[in-house]
Nucleic acid binder design. Structure first.
Length: 506
RNA sequence: GUCUUGUUAGCUCAGCUGGUAGAGCACGUCACUUUUAAUGAUGUGGCCGAUGGUUCGAAUCCAUCACAGGACACCA
């Protein structure tokens, strides 16, 4: 049973006592007229007054009881609202006859949400507090809160019951406030640049725009399967074909793949597309974007992350092949030769999947020997065409694309390129991906002939970029796990025996 | 998917080479009108994640399963 715990029973009884005494334990008659933060700011002068109080001021605050110290005929209560924590001084003789002894002391406890009216004063220990003359229960909490000192540390409970995590760990609220700020600032940054925010489908007939396994769902009315989108890219580019010249979308993508510290099945990204620009312009706007974020978030450009220190004043730019040698330490003569790469990888004790082409092998070298060493922000440019099915070829060297990925703290943060707008080339790239799929690469890109048809009407030269918002927030908040920047991260359902028998009956 | 560590009271954790369950907080009762994780006294509280096995006897040993953390693999 949900409420058979004896502590819960006890508190349900207290709620009933309150009700019987005429105090609604779930009242919505709130008269709050200030927040705790405002109260503390407005009354910061009290400490300078002679008797350290001003009985002419009167405020009504509300919040959840976090600490309760009853000392006979007077008590100290710490309540918390979204803005902060405030100490309340509650004395028997300042409240209605019997209220303190029979109602407050017996039936109000830690976890309850109460409303208090009173005047500001500073205690002997120097803490600005509220001297209560009214006290009302707003919401009775019938489930006891976790321990007040250690709080809740069990990660499983913190993720499954995020509300408890938020109640107990105020720094968690801060993380998600920063996340909200980042998204808001991102939106403003691109709007100020003249980008139009758009919404494109979350359910796709063909899962395109990335190499990943999709989630499948079914649309009954049309009798067709749909794929939760793995990326919005192909729809945003259709909008460029249609004549929008700068668009962006901040939204969720879904990938049916493994979960770990940097992967959640649903994650948030911004993708933006900018006509008449190239990936070189994207490098510049990306630097500007980071400056904008750091300015508005008041972050130091030397930012700690784990045991690293990232210098956001030190953006580097290096072609992928060059990075293999200068950063990865792979001999230059190896990096351009398929057999030599395979031999090299095997020498290093790595298993090489058969049938990989040169570009894929170069990507492999990068993942193995370079990626984790890129601490300060680094644009890795000129990706092999084989692993860039949607990117424009370089005019001088058709084997590489006009593309970069941005790495920070050993992790990919952004992916960008001058878009491929040659419909014939796009068609043959898709065909190459189909061939890869046939030979066993189940994450090769799907053929999307509708998209090719869109390109055939002509898409202006365009540059486009995607930035992983979750990973960006991880960086800015120094969180090690993506689950700590997603309010409700994906978790396996817990099956208890009761649930199992229900399922059998159904 | 693999390896590894964990799962004991509402929460945070002890529990030795197997002998039948412990603390702190919380909660109940009592005292206390300036406390800061308030304090002092006292009491209640457990199918030791689930299922099987070994054993006279299992929280403890073994196996399987579930969930979680970490690492690796896969993956943008």
């Amino acid at each position: 049973m949900l409420f058979d715990n004896k502590y819960i029973q006890q508190r349900i009884e207290k709620a009933q006592v309150l009700k019987d005494a005429g105090y609604n334990p779930y009242s919505n008659d709130s008269k709050r007229n200030t927040t705790i933060e405002k109260f503390l700011n407005v009354n910061s002068d009290i400490v300078d007054l002679e008797d350290k109080r001003d009985e002419k001021r009167h405020y009504i605050v509300s919040g959840r009881i976090k600490f309760l110290r009853i000392m006979g005929k007077a008590s100290f209560v710490k309540i918390e609202d979204e803005s902060g924590m405030l100490q309340i001084y509650v004395a028997r003789d300042n409240l209605p006859e019997n209220f303190y002894n029979t109602i407050f002391k017996k039936n109000i406890e830690v976890g309850d949400i109460i409303e208090i009216g009173g005047y500001p004063f500073v205690t002997g220990k120097g803490e600005l507090s509220l001297h209560a003359d009214t006290l009302k229960i707003l919401t009775k909490s019938i489930n006891p809160l976790p321990e007040k000192f250690h709080g809740i540390t069990d990660k499983e409970i913190r993720y499954r019951k995020r509300y408890l995590d938020l109640i107990m760990n105020s720094e968690v609220r801060k993380t998600f406030q920063i996340r909200s700020r980042v998204i808001s600032l991102t939106r403003h940054f691109f709007e100020e640049k003249g980008f139009l925010e758009v919404e494109t489908p979350m359910m796709h007939p063909i899962a395109g725009g990335a190499n990943a396994k999709p989630f499948v769902t079914h649309h009954n009315a049309l009798g067709v399967d749909r794929y939760l989108r793995i990326a919005p890219e192909l729809y945003l580019k259709r909008l460029i074909v249609g004549g929008f010249e700068a668009v962006f979308e901040i939204n969720r993508n879904f990938r049916n793949e493994g979960m770990d510290a940097t992967h959640n099945p649903e994650f948030t990204s911004i993708e933006f597309y900018w006509a008449y620009k190239t990936y070189k312009d994207l490098i510049e706007i990306t630097k500007e974007y980071f400056r904008y974020l750091f300015d508005h978030l008041n972050l130091p450009t030397l930012l700690p992350y784990g045991d690293m220190e990232v210098n956001f004043d030190n953006f580097q730019e290096i072609p992928l092949i060059e990075s293999l040698t200068t950063i990865g330490g792979v001999p230059a003569d190896v990096t351009q030769n398929k057999e030599k790469i395979i031999t090299y990888l095997k020498e290093k004790g790595l298993t090489v999947k058969p049938g990989m082409n040169l570009g894929q092998l170069q990507g492999e070298l990068f993942d193995e020997f370079v990626e984790e060493k890129l601490i300060d922000p680094t644009f890795i440019t000129e990706y092999p065409v084989e692993i860039s099915p949607l990117a424009r070829r370089n005019d001088e060297n058709s084997e590489i694309t006009e593309r970069f990925e941005l790495f920070i703290a050993g992790r990919e943060i952004a992916n960008a390129f001058s878009e491929l707008n040659d419909p014939i080339d796009q068609l043959s790239r898709f065909e190459g991906q189909m061939a890869a799929k046939d030979s066993g690469d189940d994450e090769a890109h799907e053929m999307d002939s509708d998209f090719v048809e869109a390109l055939s009407y002509g898409m202006a030269p365009t540059a486009g970029q995607g930035i992983g918002i979750d990973r960006l927030v991880m960086l800015l908040t120094n969180e090690a796990s993506i689950r700590d920047v997603i309010l409700f991260p994906a978790m396996k359902p817990v099956l208890n025996t009761a649930n199992e028998s229900e399922e059998e009956e159904a």
